[in-house]
């Protein structure tokens, strides 16, 4: 259990015979998927080998600057994608950058200060990948909810504005709903961990020879950091994004 299981090239070659089963079914049932299957398998093999070499290079780097730059690149990329999912949100990209950036920095700082991980590419990049990816999905959900609610609840907001309310009290219910929408998937997945699903990271660690209890400790850490980053990023994004639905005269746009 505690030995790291290595997959040899020979065993990998024999495992590839499993593809023949897929090809056989396709040929037998005239699915005409043989060509697609071969192309998909070849692409998967080439892409994975390529990313293997890239990761080998990245994780071999000791420079703090290199790790920081890579982190910045990941944040920018995630912010771009979150902003694209929330097309219609004013200043979506800078807001997402700030939200994901602060969420990531706060979580990483706690993990590094508590010596849970070290600031080396080998540890920071995989951990950041998880938290940044999760924050990106949460922001996309927050933006979608804000866009939907600001479209559907115009009467409620204008009624409150007409009563002399400022924009935040007029829109606070919508902002809170968006916050919940962004955070609930992470909370739900935390609730079902170990019962419904064994997360990929934990399964990977166990397969690689880590004891289940040690793998569980890692998973608990991952759950905490995902929850923290998601709530920080969603909070910042929602409280900055709602303003874009109003003009300088505090009217709905």
């Amino acid at each position: 259990m505690h030995q790291v299981s290595q997959v040899s090239n020979t065993s990998l070659f024999f495992a590839s015979s499993l593809i023949l089963i897929t090809l056989f079914f396709s040929y037998w049932q005239k699915l005409k998927l043989e060509k697609d299957t071969i192309i998909s398998v070849l692409r998967a093999v080439v892409q994975l080998i390529a990313i293997g070499y890239v990761l080998e290079f990245i994780f071999g780097q000791k420079s703090v600057w290199f790790t920081s730059l890579l982190l910045l690149f990941m944040i920018l990329n995630a912010a771009y994608n979150a902003a694209r999912r929330g097309a219609g949100i004013k200043h979506g990209f800078p807001i997402s950058c700030l939200a994901i950036g602060i969420g990531t920095v706060v979580t990483l700082s706690v993990l590094i200060c508590s010596k849970t991980i070290h600031f080396s590419a080998y540890q920071v990049i995989p951990v950041s990948g998880m938290i940044i990816g999760n924050a990106m999905i949460a922001l996309g959900l927050c933006y979608k909810q804000l866009l939907k609610d600001f479209q559907q609840k115009r009467n409620e907001i204008e009624t409150k504005l007409a009563l002399g309310s400022d924009i935040l009290p007029s829109a606070i219910n919508l902002v809170r709903d968006a916050l919940k929408t962004g955070t609930i998937p992470t909370l739900d997945s935390a609730k079902t961990l170990g019962i419904v699903s064994l997360p990929g990271m934990m399964t990977g660690l166990i397969l690689a020879g880590t004891s289940p209890l040690a793998a569980v400790k890692y998973q608990i850490m991952v759950t905490f950091m995902l929850l923290a980053t998601t709530s920080i990023a969603s909070f910042i994004a929602c409280f900055l994004a709602y303003r874009g639905f109003f003009n300088s005269q505090k009217q709905l746009v």
């Binding site: 504005l161 002399g164 309310s165 005269q249």
Partner: peptide, 8 residues
């Protein structure tokens, strides 16, 4: 005029 004050 501050819109909030005006609407009151």
């Amino acid at each position: 005029i501050n819109p909030t004050i005006l609407r009151r």
